[in-house]
Design a protein around this nucleic acid. Structure first.
Lengths: 186, 186
DNA sequence: TTGTATACTTACTTACAAGTAAGTAATTTT
DNA sequence: AAAATTACTTACTTGTAAGTAAGTATACAA
């Protein structure tokens, strides 16, 4: 039954994005799934193994999602990124990197490396999207595309975090301003 | 000896900003200060009390710092905000809100309220700064000053988080782009 | 039909975080 | 000089997180 394994990863993913890596335990997973904590250790011997699996799945989803859109115009592609974050916002979650980066120094090295890998992939993709979009006249902005991509990611990440602290309207205010700065939808 | 009490808060502040609220324990404070954990409980009966004290001190520092600059031109005032974050960046720390917001939902309500209060104060101050600065021609940007202030705070917060994950150069790249977007120093 | 792999459970161990109760030494107040 | 307050320590308790060793039920394979 691959089913249990997938449910464990899925719940762990949600827990990381809602409460943070250091604030959830195997009990938070075993209780709702009505299994014993040892069942989780059977699939994922250590919490690090589970964390790795969560990031692997996130990476796979990202690759699959962007892969499907590769032929679309860049403004549509960028919308995919914004929609991904918008969905998390509606669920009251933050993004993986937003959740894991404050705890980064407390995480085991293999986990750190996976997180860095994921962030590099997202930055690379966003950079390419903005770069090509600007050439086509879909976006208008100054400076290096990679710097602008960093700004976009930085804002999306923080908008989810700040929504929690400052109220949910913050997400829309930040993303709206962000899109305006890119000269998108113009 | 008020000294011990202050050292406890100061260390707790550093621990929150380096490892996160849920990832530090009283032992991380009692060991370096060479006191017993009960000594911390004497000053701060619960971890929540300690967390509250950390935020209180942060708020006091913010009020004192901005208060001193009230007569200065707005671009200098904004520089104070950037310098505050730059200092944290050099120390490898993130800001309080960056550290506490992912764990927000796991925190006791009084702590949540204090964090929200602090964030509101920072947003209010930044909004005023940008607003008056734009009127004087020190800044140039579109949209509501409060939305732009949100963007500034969002980027500063995220730049510290992302520096950990993506490498320390990220901080400078984000802040540089941010200042350019405000038409500052021009 | 016996054996082996899979997916668990039962029942632990170890470690440590958070908090408390009672005691003590030094200072300060009356 | 006695009493009270301050700032701790000693020595706990309770709870929980992470992990493990050994056993069991089921399926499927040789």
């Amino acid at each position: 039954m691959q089913d249990t394994k997938e449910r464990i990863v899925s719940l762990a993913d949600q827990l990381i994005k809602s409460r943070g890596y250091n604030a959830f335990s195997y009990k938070d997973i075993s209780d709702p799934l009505e299994i014993k904590n040892a069942a989780i250790h059977y699939h994922f011997p250590t919490k690090t193994d589970l964390g790795m699996a969560v990031i692997d799945v996130e990476m796979q989803h990202f690759m699959a999602g962007t892969g499907k859109l590769a032929a679309q115009p860049e403004d549509k592609q960028l919308k995919f990124l914004f929609d991904t974050f918008s969905k998390k916002h509606k669920e009251g979650l933050v993004c993986l990197m937003g959740s894991l980066s404050p705890d980064y120094d407390t995480l085991p090295e293999p986990l750190q490396d996976k997180i860095s890998g994921l962030s590099a992939a997202i930055l690379e993709w966003t950079t390419g999207c903005l770069e090509r979009g600007r050439e086509k006249g879909l976006f208008r902005f100054e400076g290096e595309a990679s710097d602008r991509a960093l700004l976009v990611i930085s804002n999306l990440l923080a908008s989810l975090l700040l929504s929690r602290v400052m109220g949910s309207k913050v997400f829309g205010r930040i993303t709206h301003q962000l899109l305006r700065d890119l000269g998108a939808g113009k």
